[in-house]
Design a protein around this nucleic acid. Structure first.
Lengths: 263, 263
DNA sequence: TCAGAATATTGGTATGACCAGTTGACCATC
DNA sequence: GATGGTCAACTGGTCATACCAATATTCTGA
């Protein structure tokens, strides 16, 4: 009885420092080029000791949001020029917790651009054991489709299998940049995983597409692998873009009868 | 008289902690699943106080290399599954300072996959001011080509202009994921910038290709923009892959008469 | 044999001190 | 007026020490 339990989220003070400051910067409540309050001031503002402040600031620096200058204060950078891909996760949700549709769209677009090339490389370099493992996943997908679960359960399972499928492909591509980018995209993706189940339904259900990719890799046909992978992600991209379009129209309607003022 | 001076490199102790530990982990001198020495031990091993250790560890955590568990030690993660794209820079050079050709190849492949889609989005969404700025860059490239500099200077200038060209395109694509990925790739790219000048020569000199991309964006022809961008990066990718091939053969020859033993 | 308590170890937090760069005001010099 | 030096007041960087909180290990007694 797994019960779907998860480890209780724990977070340190420095995590809180990081998230709060990152949120402020990404929401442009502090402009690039300005100075952050000094570390000693931040201890008062945030109510934690200086060590925690510094740990959080180091993370902000690594994320490309700030630059600490000995004696000269902490400079806020323009994250659009210096920010790292890891910021996608922070950008996906605004302060009120509602997802940023443009960010979601961006992620889907990047996925659509990378996936075909990943499959291509996989076909050029892929090894036999990889192919058999991919085939197993496809078989699992087929089983999930014909099982007598509820439709939403089936989709969730397919989504999980699909993730594993792409994970294997990325590994098979032997491209460390793809591997690392995939890690980041996946982490971000997890945050909106459930919301994407329905928009991605058309992509997830077309198991034949996945089978075509596997077949192409098996015979080392890079061009076919590429095209087949493109066919997969196209369905999903279309679904998500359509969903975003819909939500955008909804927002527009809500804006016609505004509730609260922006800051 | 600019003299070609650069800001003196400075680095804090926690930077040193980060780099040393990251280097060890990325070089697999500590395996995933193992525990790092405790913070108190690290203070002795590295000769710095615990605050600096912790700041460095926080950065390692953000980079996806470790996981700190209250009371349970610091776990080394498998960076291939959890590492962020920002690690590319660390991975590009090994401990002896020689570049990892596979990493370089990965970067070029990712670039080749993203560039066409960036141009495509740019054509779909690009605004007129963008086009005029792009046209200026192309004009500058033409000027650089016909000027009477040394060939290497010309290429360096072209390389710089090319970077600005792509930077503008990325901005025009209105895709935050591309933007952030570009930042990271660019930072890594800077480390081997000079070494890439010659392999990229064919790409840099074909200014007409760049002009075609601009023209396509101007008329909003996404398909043409995509194809033209692909033509640009293909030249560079081929050049670099050929160069890597060459170096690989060289290494193989050197390995035939080994000099020192691996650790 | 094994639950449960005691202990050691680990990361998390707090404080206070001092070092080391940066900045700007002020001033002497040229 | 421009230049360079001095000084005080910041700022981030480093250090030592203590204690809290969670986990791992050992010991103990039923």
């Amino acid at each position: 009885m797994p019960l779907g339990l998860q480890p209780v989220a724990r977070s340190s003070l420095s995590d809180g420092v990081f998230e709060q400051l990152a949120g402020q910067i990404l929401a442009r409540r502090v402009a690039a080029g300005e100075l952050l309050p000094s570390e000693r001031e931040l201890t008062k503002l945030l109510g934690v000791n200086r060590g925690a402040i510094r740990e959080g600031l180091k993370r902000l620096g690594q994320a490309g949001l700030i630059e600490q200058r000995h004696g000269g204060g902490t400079l806020v950078l323009d994250f659009r020029r210096t920010g790292s891909l890891a910021l996608l996760g922070q950008l996906l949700f605004d302060a009120e917790g509602s997802p940023d549709l443009e960010v979601a769209r961006s992620i889907m677009e990047m996925r659509a651009a990378l996936a075909p090339d990943i499959a291509r490389l996989c076909a050029e370099r892929g090894d036999p054991t990889l192919v058999s493992r991919l085939a197993e996943i496809v078989a699992d997908m087929r089983r999930a489709l014909v099982s007598e679960r509820e439709a939403s359960d089936t989709l969730a399972i397919l989504q999980q299998l699909s993730l594993e499928f792409w994970d294997l492909l990325v590994t098979g591509s032997s491209n460390i940049a793809y591997r690392l980018a995939f890690n980041t995209l996946r982490q971000t993706y997890e945050q909106i995983r459930e919301a994407l189940i329905l928009p991605l339904a058309n992509e997830l259900r077309e198991v034949d597409d996945y089978a075509r990719v596997v077949a192409a890799i098996r015979i080392g046909d890079a061009r076919l692998a590429r095209a087949s992978a493109e066919a997969i992600v196209r369905r999903g991209t279309e679904g998500v873009l359509a969903g975003i379009e819909l939500l955008g129209q909804l927002d527009a309607q809500l804006d016609a009868q505004p509730g609260d003022e922006p800051t």
